[in-house]
Simulated scan of single mutants.
Amino acid sequence: MPGDYALVDLPFFQEAIMGIQEIAGMMEYDLLLCIGSGNDMAGLRRIIQNHKVDGVVLLRTMVDDPQVTFLQERRIPFVTAGSCKYKDVKQIDHDHRSACRELTSIMLMRGMKNMALLGGSEDIVVNQTRYAGVVDAHELFGKKINDNLVFLNLEGKAYVEKAVDDAIDRGCDCLLCMDDAVCAQVMRRLRERHIKVPQQVKVASFYNSSVLENNVPSITSLSFDSKELGARACKNLLRQIEGEETENRTLLPYEVVLKESTQ
């Protein structure tokens, strides 16, 4: 589990770990939580070298992921709860690209012409996947994404606030947030500027969690079952440990939840 998560990311990791624990417990396996940040793999190296685990579930994947390389070199059974671009890696993920393509397409069908995209680090695979879904949707409508309204690598409140200000100043009519953390900060900035949602600008999030559930207005978002993601990842890993064949990549379903913020 990444140690550099934001507090608003915690619901995802909690639910995924609950899914892992549920399956592991049923099969009489114990769960050992290992936390690492960035390229710091000291904890992972230690538990592998001390033979403390039979296999590993990685809860976040990076474009250049030293954890994947290390586990492949050590020939340790593992599965990623998320996609990665490495060969011969077992992956369980939600279909983020299709989900983002569908939600963006709905906004385009509703007449949005200047959509801004706000997101976090491009080093995280899921953010690249979400971006690809937005590009796909524009291409389906014969349009090109406006690069002047794409704001990525927003690591911190000040960066998000500036991105919102720039997007509004450049005439955006809809703010697409790559996740609930960014969306919560976007909504806070819009309230500070007394910009009304959805009357003056519409807002949607590519991930939903308890962070957004009490927001007024309610937020249009993509809903994923994080607990099922963890459970399916654990099932895949246990089958590998038992020497069984497993699927290389499994994509789980999603739901588009249309609410007040895009009406």
Rank of each mutant, 00 (worst) to 15 (best):
D166M: 11
I168V: 12
I168C: 07
D169M: 14
G171N: 10
M178S: 08
D179M: 03
D179G: 02
A181L: 04
A181E: 08
V182R: 00
Q185S: 09
R188K: 12
R188A: 13
R189I: 06
R189S: 13
L190I: 09
L190R: 04
R193H: 09
H194E: 13
Q199C: 03
S205V: 00
F206L: 10
Y207M: 11
Y207W: 14
N208G: 07
V211K: 00
L212A: 08
E213F: 05
P217Q: 07
S218G: 09
I219F: 03
S221W: 00
S221R: 02
L222C: 10
S223I: 15
D225L: 11
D225Y: 12
S226P: 06
L229M: 13
G230R: 07
G230H: 06
A231Q: 09
R232W: 03
R232L: 06
K235S: 11
K235A: 09
N236S: 15
L237H: 00
L238A: 03
L238N: 07
R239M: 12
Q240H: 06
I241R: 02
E244W: 05
E245S: 13
N248V: 13
R249N: 08
L251Q: 06
L251M: 12
L251C: 04
Y254R: 07
V256R: 09
V257L: 06
